[in-house]
Amino acid sequence: MPEAILSLAGVHTHLGQHHILQGVSLEAARGRATVLLGRNGAGKSTTLRTVMGLTPASAGSVVFDGRAIEKARPYAVARAGVGFVPEDQAVLRGLTVEENFRLAMLQESPEAWAKLDTIFELFADLKKFWRAKAGVLSGGQKQMLAIARAFVGDHKLLLIDEPSKGLAPIVVDHLIASLNQLKQHTTIILVEQNFHLASQVGSDYFILDDGRVVHSGLMKALVDDEGLKQSSA
């Protein structure tokens, strides 16, 4: 078992009156892609948002890279090295693609700009629309931008929330290829409803239900297990 970059232990999160996470415990291994699966409302997105500090945990511990971050504010979590790609292609529409990237670079260092070359290899479209407003991009391009933006910030861990949501199947295939490339550079935690994408990208999985982890293991084993696949996808 490789070393865990992120570990959650007994995390509870409340949203107003609702008790969303009811004791989530999971570990994501460094250098691998971990997928969170489960039906709608199981608490997958909330898990990511709790790690990020957007919906702070009311109990439990979140340890990232040896540091406790359960009480940290979102910007501090980001500065500690966690990148976040929210769902619904949350790019900043009023800004150009270039400005989106400049925003993502905390320091506009030469290394950061050099990283853009890697990004242009992965997402060629972004170079083409460099000076265009992000709002005019297609859904797939926006998603690419959102992921690339998190990547350029030089994070040790990327949290990606439902990247395939609302995208055409052919775009999803392109996305899978890109994510697999990305996996070479950084650790990923992915929330995904699309089992095809999850199984192609993920190496480990956790299944959440009613705010708890109910099952976990290696992605390979899950793909082989037809019964479980039916109940989770």
């Binding site: 990020m52 957007l54 504010r73 979102p74 910007y75 979590v77 980001a78 500065r79 990148g83 976040f84 929210p86 949350a90 900043l92 529409r93 009023g94 800004l95 400005e99 925003l103 993502a104 905390l106 933006r149 910030g153």
Partner: peptide, 16 residues
């Protein structure tokens, strides 16, 4: 300008 559009995203990019 980004913060006016979406505070949350700007926060998660590491800005207070």
């Amino acid at each position: 300008r980004a913060g006016v559009e979406n505070r949350e995203v700007v926060q998660t990019l590491g800005y207070n």
